[in-house]
């Protein structure tokens, strides 16, 4: 009950500070633009965006609507989690500001409950937005193009899960640095780190031809949430992009590994938080 109160307060804080409302407004705006702008002409197979032709359904080899959805999804997932982190990262250090921590810590909640409820609230607000936006896109494309891509909904769940895993990094950094600025910067830096680790064989490996170094990179890849791999695989749930190079199908492996890493990082945050003096 007390933890739930803190979780709801955290979401309320994100709303009252404007971040969540701003995101919801941006999501709604994008949905409206698509809803009003995109249309398909049954007769000539032309798909237009505010009257401008953007694609044409020629023949039956592939579905143009699917092409649009799948490529848009691949391009936007990264930005969705980055914006999400911008909005939520500050909520962890803000509870640790001098004067605020003392009050929260004096209430009868264990530090574990305090931290996890706060993190859940902070990430939860963003997850709600992700689900709302995904459901909206699903409806818009279904109604306007007739493409009922159910994969958008499973991808929304995968993306939410990805965000929760990513947020474990944010939480740990936030609890240690106690600075919103640092946390946001490191969280953004992590997107690059995660991508760099994923393609390490073609990048970081080549920097130094040393076996130990390579094994360390491997270890890091498996120990840290695989943000980049999870994003790619979330998009694969929306189906393939016709004619694209990527022929792989959805794999749950990065999600499984990341679940473990995130659990480890959240446990690490709790461990650190419990041991600190405030």
């Amino acid at each position: 009950m007390k933890s739930l109160a803190l979780l709801l307060f955290t979401i309320n804080e994100a709303i009252r500070k404007g971040t969540l409302l701003f995101y919801a407004a941006v999501a709604t705006l994008i949905l409206l633009v698509f809803a009003l702008g995109i249309s398909s002409n049954e007769a000539n197979g032309l798909i237009t965006f505010f009257g401008m032709p953007i694609a044409v359904q020629a023949g039956k080899q592939f579905d143009v609507g699917q092409f649009i959805i799948a490529s848009l999804h691949r391009q936007s997932v990264f930005w969705i989690v980055v914006f999400g982190v911008f909005g939520a990262a500050g909520l962890i250090p803000s509870m640790l500001e001098k004067g605020t921590t003392e009050i929260f810590l004096s209430k009868p909640l264990s530090r574990t409950a305090l931290l996890l409820a706060r993190a859940a609230g902070a990430a939860g607000g963003i997850v709600i937005n992700i689900l709302y936006f995904s459901a909206g896109i699903f409806l818009v494309f279904g109604l306007k193009l007739g493409v009922w891509q159910w994969g958008l909904l499973t991808a929304a769940v995968a993306l939410s899960f990805t965000f929760l895993c990513y947020f474990s990094v944010v939480t740990l950094v936030g609890i240690i640095t106690r600075s919103s600025g640092f946390t946001v910067m490191l969280a953004l830096g992590y997107t690059v780190i995660s991508w760099g680790l994923e393609i390490r064989q073609h990048g970081l490996y080549l920097l130094w031809n040393n076996d130990v170094y390579h094994r360390v990179l491997d270890a890091l890849y498996y120990l840290l949430p695989q943000l980049s791999a999870m994003l790619t695989n979330s998009s694969r749930l929306v189906g393939a992009v016709p004619f694209a190079n990527d022929t792989s199908t959805f794999s749950i492996i990065p999600f499984v590994w990341s679940f473990g890493s995130a659990a480890l990082l959240y446990a690490g945050s709790v461990w650190y938080f419990t041991r600190q003096d405030y």
Binding site: K2, R16, I103
Partner: peptide, 27 residues
């Protein structure tokens, strides 16, 4: 109960809401 020497409250809450919040957190 604890009144710390330096204390800050979420500025977007009213006095009443602040008490409601910490009351809930106190169970």
């Amino acid at each position: 109960g604890y009144l710390p020497e330096s204390h800050r409250y979420p500025g977007f809450l009213s006095g009443f809401e602040t008490l409601m919040l910490f009351g809930r957190l106190s169970g």
